[in-house]
């Protein structure tokens, strides 16, 4: 399943990041977001706005379009 299908507050493990663009992938790695890490989908802003994630105790904001490219599995 993809990240944005999670419900608010749900947790999942990241399976695959390779769908995102090179630049986004590098930034995600910089922030410690990699395959195998647990991610919590915290909320999303309206009208297709960005969403908020928590990974390794660290919150980040990410465009929904990018988040849709991240594959996860519910834990």
């Amino acid at each position: 399943m993809i990240l944005t299908e999670l419900k608010k507050g749900e947790k999942a493990t990241i399976l695959n990041l390779s769908g995102t663009t090179e630049l986004v992938q590098q930034r995600l790695l910089d922030l410690g977001i990699t395959e195998g890490e647990e991610v919590c989908y915290k909320c999303a802003l309206p009208f297709g706005g960005p969403c908020m994630l928590e990974v390794c105790g660290q919150c980040i904001g990410l465009r929904r379009r990018e988040a849709k490219e991240i594959q996860v599995v519910r834990t």
Binding site: L23, P50, Q58, C59
Partner: peptide, 8 residues
């Protein structure tokens, strides 16, 4: 391609 990633 526009990107937006921000640390909160």
């Amino acid at each position: 391609h526009s990107v937006f990633i921000v640390e909160l």
